[in-house]
């Protein structure tokens, strides 16, 4: 060590070590700065999730002229005589989700009425990376000769998720 000191090499080594520290600090700070972007992307995803729920609630199943979520709720409440055929509805919803979602995103729609459940995930069997859920209810007024008018409630949950890119 004494020989190294005498030649001044230890100072050179110290400066070289500082270079390494500087490089490591730069990488760390760059990653830290980039972290700010993640919450902003999450906020946009949350917004997409909320809008998807509303889009499915308001958009119609063509050519039947019935809101998509309401048509699904009919499958649970009046399965014997729904306005839209279940297979056509599932296919229509899948096409709608494919159209509405950008690449790299998937969605799941789930309706629950008592113990009955109707659900669809697009794309089928997709691996979920980050999930943003939106929930609500759809009231249904059913007229009955004996009991008058009954209000039935169907719970709705939509999820927008990111799919890991391979």
């Amino acid at each position: 060590m004494a020989r190294i000191d005498r030649r001044g090499v230890s100072d050179v080594l110290a400066v070289a070590f500082m270079f390494i520290l500087l490089a490591m600090a730069t990488v760390f700070i760059s990653n830290f700065i980039a972290l700010q972007l993640e919450p902003a992307i999450d906020r946009q995803l949350e917004l997409k999730s909320e809008h998807l729920y509303q889009a499915l609630k308001n958009s119609w199943v063509m050519p039947h002229g019935l809101p998509i979520i309401r048509a699904i709720a009919e499958q649970l409440i009046i399965p014997e005589e729904p306005t839209v055929d279940n297979d056509y509805l599932a296919s229509y919803l899948e096409n709608t989700l494919e159209y509405l979602l950008p690449q790299g995103y998937g969605a799941a729609v789930k309706l629950v009425y008592g113990e009955k459940v109707w659900e669809l995930t697009y794309p089928t069997g997709a691996e979920v990376e980050k999930n943003f859920a939106e929930t609500g209810t759809i009231p249904f007024i059913i007229s009955s000769e004996n009991a008058g008018q009954i209000i039935e409630v169907v719970e709705v949950e939509t999820n927008v998720f990111t799919i890991p890119q391979s």
Binding site: S59, W60, M62, G65, P67, I68, T96, Y99
Partner: peptide, 8 residues
């Protein structure tokens, strides 16, 4: 045209 379309 008095119809509700899914849109982006």
């Amino acid at each position: 045209n008095c119809r509700m379309f899914p849109a982006r």
